[in-house]
Design a protein around this nucleic acid. Sequence first.
DNA 1: TCATGGTAGTAGCTTAGCTAATGGCTACAT
DNA 2: ATGTAGCCATTAGCTAAGCTACTACCATGA
Lengths: 294, 294
Amino acid sequence: MMNLSHWRLIVAVADTGTVSQGAARVGMTQSAASQAIAQMEKTLGAPLFTRLRREVILTAFGESIVEHARTMLTSLNAIRVLADERQGIGSGRLRLGSFPSIISRWLPSLLSTFRQRHPGIEIVLLEGSDEEVETWLAERTIDLGVILNPTPDRHPLILGRDAWVALLPHSHPLARRASAQGVELDELVTQPYIHASGGCRVNGQRLAEARGLTFRDVRVSVRDWASACALVRENMGIAIVPESVLPEDRKGLRIQPLQPRMERRFGLVAAAPVENAPVLNTFWQHVENAKHKK
Amino acid sequence: MMNLSHWRLIVAVADTGTVSQGAARVGMTQSAASQAIAQMEKTLGAPLFTRLRREVILTAFGESIVEHARTMLTSLNAIRVLADERQGIGSGRLRLGSFPSIISRWLPSLLSTFRQRHPGIEIVLLEGSDEEVETWLAERTIDLGVILNPTPDRHPLILGRDAWVALLPHSHPLARRASAQGVELDELVTQPYIHASGGCRVNGQRLAEARGLTFRDVRVSVRDWASACALVRENMGIAIVPESVLPEDRKGLRIQPLQPRMERRFGLVAAAPVENAPVLNTFWQHVENAKHKK
DNA sequence: TCATGGTAGTAGCTTAGCTAATGGCTACAT
DNA sequence: ATGTAGCCATTAGCTAAGCTACTACCATGA
């Protein structure tokens, strides 16, 4: 009742028409949302939604309440805008660079929540290979960039880490092996190989080279990870990909961890110290925050 | 930031002009309020108040924020009103009876918070002796009454308990004695006595009678506890009063616990089962709640 | 110089509110 | 019919926000 994020939830659920989607929109689990709604209804003394088969719609009572909830939220927004202005981040531009796989997995929610909180800030997002991102950073084309395996001296904000895995067609002999055991690069380099880079310098071939190995039989070379997955599924060969780019649907695919384990880390780095630029600093903290929550 | 009670606090502090008073108005401790404000200012990124010597005033920034906070709170209020209407307690009358000492100590905050939450309900407060309260309950002149030492069969909601204490002038011989030891009624009945009832059947004289004793030397008989205290201070005699009616200023007075310990309990009882009357039920739960918090 | 009235800070506890896991229910495709 | 997927509710258990109680400190006025 006294928690504005619950009111935000109510509005989101009213808008999306389902609890799950509403919950997702405000970054909650379905369970939390369900509980919160139940509790609100209890303290209000009457149901806000009528539960239908596949959706949930506002009762007349809920309708009248949500109206007021909206005005509360717009007031809150106004407060946020005022606070932003006061801090000199009422307006501004944020130039951000990243390579594709991160963009699709991590950035969308980050950017959308940031956008909501700070509507005055324009975000420019540049997509390129990780080498390009480095160049842009050096040239100050972008303020912040997501790069791979950042060294500590660049004071990165680590966003996550990905284990490299071998992607095999279901029929492949190595696919039989228990995943606990994993596969070694030596075993893989002799196999028909699908080279995929995802626009990054670090990729399967580089991993092999770093250990003095090389893939003999390169069947095809693609940039997009998803294409590589598709090719593996079609039995064109094996591939080495980061765990996080695996498709939801793993039919026809078999994933084996690499032995020894290898991973890539990715993090946010700044072209110049962030402390001096309020807008950047705010974004940086926003990311730190979100990371901590997830 | 997301907690409406914090916004309510901010508004209260802005209105009262001090953190302590603002905190009291919303039922927090000063410490909690101080922390909450500090935290709000941190997340907003700028101070809301400038701390003066003996008070605290809004900054220009705070001014603009509070404005929006107020609209949030009025929206919340509107929501409460809607919920009340929906439950059939949007309007109604609540007739309440009590005797004076309780009224001044316990009821004011209870009633004011209830009034805030449920602005549609009219409260009628009747003040009388506890005998009168009993009569009114029986006659259904009042819906709820505060009575002394309610028996369990009346399903009372116990509000609190008071130890009976002996009130002595500072110069009195019994005042010397260590308070751990206390005084016995036998010792007191021979002393010059100021009879005070506070409008209640249970009072010093009755306590004595219940043990087969009686005060010999009754100097004066008053109804008001405060008058009795003043008379004791003027050395007119001793008195027996409930702990909770003692004045803040105890200069010239000495308090001795009775031996053995005696106390009065007071609680809320209903003229008729409360479940059937939504308004009464709401009030009852409000009191239960407040009791639990304190 | 002591009482008063105010704010800030610290330690520790309570509990609201979250996640993860599970179950049940309905719709829809095979 | 029989999975399969999307949805909601419920439970158990954990974490962290926010509270209280206490203390320190500072200014004022008797």
